[in-house]
Design a protein around this nucleic acid. Structure first.
Lengths: 155, 155
DNA sequence: CAGGATCCCTAAGGATACTG
DNA sequence: CAGTATCCTTAGGGATCCTG
């Protein structure tokens, strides 16, 4: 049993899900492969246009289009910067909104490691050196397995 | 500062990321909008073909193609079942591999709630009634903010 | 109910060439 | 370096009709 449980009068069956579901709306913003991978690169510290395109492995036109969308959506900010003695350049940096997607990327990463084979890299907590994992907890701090989750009306 | 830190000899800049990155490989499997939403429906307890297509809001041909891919990849299993007095039907159920994507979906859902506006539903822990969240913790149980994460070679 | 077949449209993305 | 412009291919997805 891997399903979550639906409670009360709530009934996503019938259609609210398609339009209002926050997963669907999120995927409207970052639902493409290139968008996700560009964000990954941003977490890796990449800031420059050419590096984004090369490291993600996408063409420059695609990188330009996707980066502009991410900037328009407020996940990245584009700003000029200038090192002394150099000419001005552009850099892309994660906003708070963009950085808040990190748990989702970590969750995807750890699923890939577990089910598609190890990749030779891992995330660690700087303070203690232990691996970092994305996990579900309730506000009381209890770990929550899938089958203990209810989907309920908010408020 | 929202970047993670790269340690040691590791240097994803230059190309390992594109091919070996577990995020990229994961997105090869569930990187389409329809795949993600079908999995969401599976977590909601949907099991039948027509319901998947209707609730996700995709056409039947697309639902058929995507479901078959998810079955082929081992995230769903397709099996006939029969209620007494009824004719045989097909159902799709999450495997352990599929169910293990739940933290990723929760992370996407909570990002949508926070940055794109509330949706009127939320996930709660059945035992205590508290909201459920996807968060990053190290193996010692410490919550880990983005800027305390290192990307290191595994092992 | 659970699809398959067919046709069509659009969006994602690559290749190449060019510019401030 | 940081793109834009142009052209092209492919994949995602919708609509309609049909079948066991």
């Amino acid at each position: 049993m891997h399903e979550i449980r639906l409670t009360g009068a709530l009934d996503p069956r019938g259609g609210w899900a398609a339009a209002a579901c926050p997963i669907g709306r999120t995927l409207e913003v970052v639902g493409t492969r290139s968008a996700m991978l560009l964000l990954r690169e941003a977490f890796y510290g990449t800031t420059r246009f050419d590096d984004f395109a090369e490291r993600v492995g996408i063409s420059q036109p695609v990188a330009a289009a996707r980066l502009r969308e991410l900037v328009d959506e407020g996940l990245l900010e584009r700003e000029p910067y200038q090192e002394p003695g150099q000419r001005a350049r552009m850099q892309y940096r994660l906003t708070d909104k963009g950085a808040d997607l990190f748990p989702a990327l970590v969750a995807l990463m750890q699923w890939g490691q577990r089910w598609l084979g190890p990749s030779g890299v891992e995330l660690r907590h700087r303070d203690c050196g232990q691996p970092v994992r994305a996990e579900l907890r309730c506000a009381d701090g209890h770990p929550v397995p899938v089958d203990e989750v209810d989907l309920a009306t908010a408020g």
